[in-house]
């Protein structure tokens, strides 16, 4: 049987190391795999739909767009534990006196790349749900890494720089970026979180509905068996930012479906 072909987006050189490690983990099993790297999620979703790849390691926006383009004829088969509890953090300068999203009225909010769910699309949705419309807050959009759905984190770092440089009063970033900068502990007096979003779901492995379960299930079972306590598995899990592969939490994508609909984000690029 041919290896299962997995697509992933090359947002950092480390992606090569990660996927070679995952491929090695599947070697000599009943579900061997190989991988293809894409430069952006648009190309990857196209390749999933046209059958070039069997699975796509998709962001939440890529998942939503795959659902839209296939009329729902696709399935999310696995995800990271960290993807089931993703959050957006709204941060401001320490002592700026912001207490919740309404504090942003008449202030400037820096957003990440326009295709970043965590740093652009969902923050606008959260603002809308809090009753803050486009006229109530000045949005500074920083489209540093369009196509990669915010994976590089660069646009979020640029949003934070905008706050430091007083070009914005606050920034919306993913919790992974907040962790990467050491939360508020490495830069005392720099940033504080004034609002945390509810948890939502982020990346998942996406397959077309037509992919037979008997082909995909052994691969999923072996993926879920990757063990944090196994020294041979640990480096891959650490690099990919999880402790355990798990089944997706589909209800965690609803907020993004709502945001995409409300903001009129198209199904294609």
């Amino acid at each position: 049987m041919d290896p299962i072909l997995v697509g992933a987006v090359a947002y950092t050189p480390n992606v090569v190391t990660i996927w070679e490690g995952i491929r090695d983990y599947f070697a000599d099993t009943d579900s061997e795999m190989d991988f293809v790297l894409f430069s952006n999620y648009g190309r990857q979703v196209d390749s999933l739909i046209d059958g070039t790849v069997d699975l796509a390691w998709n962001t939440n926006l890529a998942w939503v767009r795959t659902v839209a383009q296939t009329d729902g004829a696709c399935k999310a088969v696995a995800t990271r534990d960290t993807d089931t509890v993703f959050q957006t953090m709204f941060v401001c300068r320490t002592g700026a006196g912001m207490t919740d999203l309404t504090s942003l009225r008449a202030r400037r909010l820096a957003l990440g790349s326009k295709d970043s769910a965590q740093a652009a699309i969902l923050p606008v949705q959260f603002l809308a749900e809090a009753g803050i419309g486009g006229d109530d807050v000045e949005l500074l959009r920083i489209n540093s890494d369009v196509g990669k759905h915010g994976d590089t984190g660069r646009s979020e770092l640029d949003a934070l720089r905008a706050v430091l440089d007083d070009r914005a009063d606050a920034a919306a970033i993913g919790i992974n970026t907040w962790e990467a900068i050491g939360r508020d502990q490495l830069m005392p007096g720099a940033f504080e979180v004034f609002w945390e979003s509810p948890t939502y779901s982020h990346c998942n492995f996406t397959a077309l509905e037509s992919m037979p379960d008997e082909r995909i299930q052994p691969w999923v079972d072996h993926l879920l068996a990757m063990d944090w306590e196994n020294p041979a598995h640990r480096p891959i899990l650490e690099m990919e930012g999880l402790r355990q592969w798990v089944l997706p939490r589909l209800e965690g994508y609803q907020s993004l479906f709502d945001a995409v609909a409300a903001q009129g984000i198209t199904a294609r690029w």
């Binding site: 050189p13 590089t152 770092l157 720089r161 430091l164 990467a180 900068i181 830069m187 720099a190």
Partner: peptide
């Protein structure tokens, strides 16, 4: 503390592979 330094660290580490 130069706050931009930490942001630079995060950005730079993302541009290299593990071990580099």
């Amino acid at each position: 503390v130069n706050h931009a330094l930490v942001l630079d660290l995060v950005e730079r580490v993302g541009a290299v592979a593990t071990g580099a």
